[in-house]
Nucleic acid binder design. Structure first.
Lengths: 158, 158
DNA sequence: ACGCAAATGCAATTCAATTGCATTTAATAT
DNA sequence: ATATTAAATGCAATTGAATTGCATTTGCGT
């Protein structure tokens, strides 16, 4: 069993790691001088454990035991993204969030047409599907590339 | 003035080209054995002239004189896309459609952070921003790459 | 011309995302 | 420690894209 015996005064392992996560989240928030609130910590801690980009609804679902408010989850995901802690991947028009890996470590994402799962692919130093391992190579049926920034017309107007 | 004199029996230039477009649209529909309906022709003809990926709302707006139904526009955009006539670019979760350029001629898109305009960039034979012309190179602030297909787990289940 | 499947028009609905506002809370100054 | 205040929250209402149910119309093969 995962839980310790009840007569032990110590918290069980799960809640210990959960608290560690929340502490990590608090540190990250303070570093960016964001206010450390319970809902915000909960959202960030949840994203710290997520192994794939997670939609707002998913985060909310994962936190529903705490009676988190959906609107607040949305607001915090926006705040955390604006602060550079999270990045967004949109899949079929739905935003999914993941911890921001840092400028140099951005990686492409893979969306399964069948199960909808979103995977983070390993970074490719030089672009090209040829560098993906064989399993992934066989999987790819299409790709899309989007750049963004200030378009030439807007640049000259600044 | 663009219009011809009223006493001329001939249609003016604008309506002539507009009819040409509609005829091109009809041909494309017949080639894919899609039913040639007035709303469908209107949507496709509109996309044939669009110089940038166009949202459903935009298409509808552009056709509002004809009293087109929004739901029907949505349905036709889906049909035309499924038939391979259009491709979709999603920007901030909103679908934008453009004529499908064909497998070999797919190109990346650029979304302006300021004005929201979406531009089709020239195809890059080898990937890399270095190949964009100087104006565009200066514009780019970020990029996202998404691949899709059947993920390894789903492949083995087929 | 006829018959039927497909498409349309219209309204209602779903779902992601945002927002207005009264209340609570975290960080700061006292 | 306590008061202060701007920020964040909780809840409900709202927006906006996209979809859908259904009665009616229309394209198209026979």
């Amino acid at each position: 069993m995962t839980r310790r015996d009840a007569h032990s005064g110590e918290p069980d392992l799960d809640s210990r790691t959960r608290e560690e996560l929340r502490e990590r989240a608090r540190v990250l928030l303070r570093r960016r001088s964001l206010r450390v609130t319970q809902p915000r910590v909960a959202v960030l801690a949840h994203l710290l454990t997520a192994d794939a980009p997670t939609s707002c609804a998913d985060v909310h679902r994962g936190l529903r035991d705490d009676g988190q408010d959906l609107g607040t989850v949305y607001r915090n995901l926006r705040v955390l993204t604006a602060a550079g802690l999270l990045q967004v991947v949109r899949v079929d028009g739905v935003a999914h969030y993941l911890m921001f890996a840092g400028g140099a470590h951005r990686h492409p994402h893979f969306v399964c047409d069948t199960c909808g799962r979103i995977c983070c692919l390993p970074t490719l130093r030089t672009a090209g599907v040829s560098e993906l391992d064989a399993r992934w190579r066989a999987a790819v049926r299409g790709a899309s590339v989007q750049l963004h920034g200030a378009c030439p017309e807007c640049v000259t107007m600044d």
